[in-house]
Simulated scan of single mutants.
Amino acid sequence: MTQLDHLCPWCQTEIVWDPEIGPEDTCPHCFNELGEYRSVSLKVKTDGEQLLFDEDDEDLDDEDVDDEDLEDMEDEETFDDYEEGVQLVMDTQEEAPECTSCHNLMLFAGTRTMSPDFVPVVPSKLKQSLLKPSHSSQVYVCPSCFKIDHFIADDDRNAMIELLKEHGKR
């Protein structure tokens, strides 16, 4: 990364700063604050020396962190492999909704049928519920912030549209 690039600690999205404007105060993807707020900075010395924390926190133990763990975290190939895996799955999807949290495209994770204890509301004007008690939803997961979203499955979505269109004609 260049000195003008930064990785958001909240959504793990790369932020490219405009050299004329300067560093961002908030992440343009997830809108969380950037900077020192709620952050711990680590300084690593070479040749296997101990880690030094910027904050004076006695609860943290320097010996809990191995040099191998740090190398794994800094291994860009691992992140590249992850991104390639995400793209591989994304290429098989017909649609990919945008995450409401970080605005990255989401991965289709599966279908979920609503449990029998779901009690649908029956609007008084329709005299029929918008969704069947056993409706299905498609489950999507965000590969960046790992938020999960549910969307009504196509058959149940079409049934709801037809119901509303039918009652809208009256």
Results as ranks from 00 to 15, higher is better:
residue 112 R to A: 14
residue 118 F to L: 13
residue 118 F to Y: 15
residue 98 E to C: 01
residue 123 P to C: 08
residue 126 L to V: 06
residue 113 T to K: 15
residue 124 S to A: 13
residue 104 N to F: 04
residue 104 N to G: 09
residue 140 Y to C: 08
residue 141 V to F: 05
residue 130 L to E: 09
residue 160 M to N: 08
residue 131 L to K: 13
residue 101 S to H: 11
residue 95 E to C: 06
residue 158 N to W: 09
residue 110 G to M: 13
residue 114 M to R: 09
residue 136 S to G: 10
residue 136 S to D: 13
residue 142 C to H: 00
residue 157 R to I: 03
residue 162 E to W: 03
residue 163 L to E: 10
residue 122 V to W: 08
residue 160 M to P: 02
residue 135 H to M: 12
residue 150 H to T: 00
residue 153 A to G: 00
residue 164 L to Y: 00
residue 155 D to S: 07
residue 130 L to D: 04
residue 108 F to N: 06
residue 157 R to L: 14
residue 152 I to C: 00
residue 139 V to D: 00
residue 144 S to M: 10
residue 120 P to W: 13
residue 95 E to W: 05
residue 101 S to F: 11
residue 167 H to K: 06
residue 108 F to R: 13
residue 139 V to C: 09
residue 116 P to W: 04
residue 109 A to D: 11
residue 145 C to Y: 12
residue 139 V to Y: 08
residue 138 Q to R: 14
residue 117 D to P: 03
residue 98 E to W: 02
residue 110 G to D: 14
residue 116 P to E: 12
residue 131 L to P: 02
residue 109 A to N: 12
residue 100 T to W: 03
residue 109 A to R: 12
residue 140 Y to I: 06
residue 133 P to V: 10
residue 125 K to E: 08
residue 157 R to T: 02
residue 134 S to M: 10
residue 123 P to L: 11
residue 159 A to D: 15
residue 168 G to K: 02
residue 100 T to Q: 10
residue 143 P to A: 08
residue 163 L to Q: 08
residue 140 Y to V: 05
residue 161 I to V: 15
residue 107 L to D: 08
residue 161 I to K: 14
residue 143 P to L: 05
residue 99 C to K: 06
residue 101 S to R: 08
residue 108 F to I: 06
